[in-house]
């Protein structure tokens, strides 16, 4: 038979994998949002400050390296140096830093898309840079940031599958374990693909709709 069969235990196992994927994604997105907000705001500073250059270097670096190898260095690399790291810790650190850079770019673009007139009107009232950001620019920029930020979330969900490469059991690695037990690769990989699709597709529709409304 082409498809093979899955037992209840197999389905449970895949379900647990799904939850672990979600946990990894939510942690990564949560930390990534914090990092991204900080670095994005620093990056958008019109004045050439040291913090701006650090933020720029951070974002520039992560836009040009493969996420999978960050997982590999973060776990296997560190272990090979004789340090003890948990898989979850290494994987979360890598995905958060990576997500933070992407969110940072979203935040920066959002801030920069608010017109110059808004800055000028604010500073001519005597408002400081920080107050202008807080009360005038960010409230307007957030709307612009949401659709691309959802795009980043989709990317994180898909990217989290790469954590399987360092042996972190999430959906894909759970799937590979089930394949070893059942010899039903088509069914298992198909199911896994569908699970990702069910998470990502509604998000991509949402992002598209929100973008159209802007």
């Amino acid at each position: 038979m082409v498809f093979g069969k899955l037992s209840i235990a197999d389905i449970n196992y895949l379900w647990r994998g799904t939850l672990l994927t979600l946990r990894l994604c939510l942690t990564g997105i949560g930390l990534g949002l914090i990092l991204g907000a900080i670095f994005g705001i620093l990056r958008a500073n019109p004045r050439k400050t040291l913090t701006k250059m650090i933020a720029a270097a951070y974002i520039e670096f992560f836009r040009a390296v493969p996420l999978m190898l960050l997982f590999v260095v973060g776990y296997f690399g560190i272990i090979s140096l004789g340090y003890n790291v948990s898989r979850f810790g290494a994987v979360v650190a890598a995905i958060s830093l990576y997500t933070g850079a992407y969110i940072g770019q979203v935040v920066r673009t959002g801030i920069e898309s608010v017109g110059r007139g808004q800055w000028e009107a604010s500073v001519s009232l005597g408002m400081s840079y920080v107050d202008t950001l807080r009360y005038v620019i960010l409230p307007q920029a957030v709307k612009i940031m949401i659709p691309p930020a959802i795009g980043v979330v989709i990317g994180v969900v898909k990217g989290s599958s790469l954590a399987s490469v360092v042996g972190y059991v999430e959906l894909v690695l759970a799937g590979r374990h089930v394949i070893q037990r059942t010899y039903a690769p088509l069914l298992v990989m198909g199911t896994i693909a569908m699970i990702y699709f069910v998470i990502c597709y509604p998000l991509s529709i949402l992002s598209k709709n929100l973008e159209r409304k802007l």
């Binding site: 082409v2 989709i154 969900v157 898909k158 990217g159 599958s161 790469l162 399987s164 490469v165 894909v172 799937g175 590979r176 394949i179 690769p185 088509l186 990989m189 198909g190 896994i192 693909a193 990702y196 699709f197 990502c200 597709y201 991509s204």
Partner: peptide, 21 residues
């Protein structure tokens, strides 16, 4: 939509493990 909303890794595994079926 299928290719854009599933991980590249899963697509690779699908081709590698499932196509021989």
């Amino acid at each position: 939509e299928l290719f854009r909303n599933t991980p590249f890794l899963v697509q690779i595994y699908f081709a590698y493990f499932a196509l021989p079926t």
